[in-house]
Computed example of a mutant assay.
Amino acid sequence: MLAAQPIDHLVADPDTDTELKRKLTLANQARRFAENRLALPTGDAYTDYSELGRPWVVVNLVAVPEFSLTPHQWCYPVLGCQAYRGYFNLDGARTEQRQFQELGYDTFIGGVTAYSTLGWFDDPLHSGFTSLSDDRMVALIFHELAHRVLYIDEDTAFNESFATAVELEGLRLWLEKRGEGKQFEAAVQRQAQRNQTLAMVEKTSRELEALYQRKGELTRDAMRQQKEQLFAELVSEYNRRAMHWEEPGPLGKQLESLNNANIALFRQYNQYVPGFRQLLKEQDYRFDDFFDRVMALSEQDEEQRVQILEQLSQRFDEYL
């Protein structure tokens, strides 16, 4: 943040790299679209630019017990509890990862391209954004700005699914407005891949949850064997479908293995996306009304929130 420079100055500077200048100009346009069409609270976010010198801001560690799909929670001042922990230093993440692995946890470390300080600070645009393709950069801007609208303590899946829904619908409207058919088609294909992957992951998750409920009936070795078989089937099915995708899918181009932490993280960002998208659709894509409805939903207890979102999901039909 301290190293950031005003984007307007960089765009006006003749010494700024031509491609970076184009990306910054596009980001400015996306920011105005987010404020005017998507009713997102931009404030002074993304008015400055910072060069990171690496493709990620932080790396996140996710840790899940061997026979569970409920991630370990880390709790922080102000923010409450989250199902991941971020590190600026990869070695620090790996050190804590080993500690969890010694306790039998499934773990995953992944690079985080962007973040939101939830409106506490004016987050800068950075090279993690500008290194992405145009549509992915714009979508990420929408996603992170959505976190400034709403954040619920201790409900990562709600927060991330909401932001992902805003990202997807915002990108659709953005590309439609600009008449960018080629990029829109690519976004359509990525969404189809995401939907197929979510369906596969949810099916396996239901089977794993049924297995994990049998802790008292089966030996640990028997449970471990069945768990490995379920994940092997998921990896095989994903790879079979991914062979026909033009772009890498949401879990990568080809998988070698998966564990509880991988799918727990994927579900957090996607589990309730269909429900949120249906809620937005029912508001006729008036984002300010949608945000009011989501605010009201956030005030319900967790069981009620889940029930309402699942009912909305059942009504949702993909139109992309």
Rank of each mutant, 00 (worst) to 15 (best):
E160T: 04
S161F: 03
S161D: 03
A163T: 07
T164A: 09
L168G: 13
G170N: 04
G170M: 06
G170P: 03
L171I: 14
R172G: 13
R172H: 15
R172A: 12
L173P: 05
W174T: 03
L175G: 07
L175N: 11
E176P: 03
R178T: 07
G181K: 15
K182L: 11
E185N: 09
A186V: 15
A187I: 05
Q189R: 10
Q189G: 04
Q189I: 13
R190Q: 04
R190H: 11
R190W: 04
Q191S: 11
Q191K: 12
A192K: 13
Q193D: 09
R194P: 00
R194E: 05
N195T: 12
N195R: 15
Q196G: 10
L198N: 03
L198E: 05
L198K: 00
A199E: 08
A199I: 01
A199V: 06
M200T: 02
V201F: 08
V201G: 03
E202T: 13
T204A: 10
R206S: 15
R206L: 14
L208G: 10
L208R: 08
E209A: 12
Q213V: 11
Q213L: 14
R214E: 05
L218F: 11
R220G: 10
R220H: 10
R220A: 10
R224N: 14
R224L: 14
R224Q: 11
Q225S: 11
Q226I: 05
Q226F: 08
K227P: 12
E228I: 07
E228H: 12
E228Y: 09
Q229L: 11
L230T: 09
L230W: 01
F231M: 07
F231D: 00
L234Y: 01
L234G: 08
V235M: 02
S236P: 00
S236R: 14
E237V: 09
Y238E: 02
N239Q: 06
N239P: 00
R240L: 13
R241G: 09
R241T: 11
M243K: 15
W245G: 08
E246V: 13
E246C: 01
P250W: 00
L251E: 00
Q254I: 07
L255F: 04
L255R: 01
S257V: 13
L258R: 02
N260Y: 02
N262S: 02
N262M: 00
I263T: 01
F266T: 07
Q268S: 15
N270T: 12
Q271W: 01
Y272K: 01
V273P: 00
V273D: 06
P274G: 05
P274K: 02
G275C: 03
F276I: 05
R277S: 04
R277T: 05
Q278L: 07
L279D: 04
L279I: 07
L280M: 00
K281T: 15
K281I: 10
K281L: 12
K281W: 12
D284T: 09
Y285A: 08
R286Y: 07
R286K: 10
D292P: 00
V294F: 01
M295G: 15
M295E: 15
A296I: 05
A296T: 12
A296E: 08
L297T: 02
L297C: 03
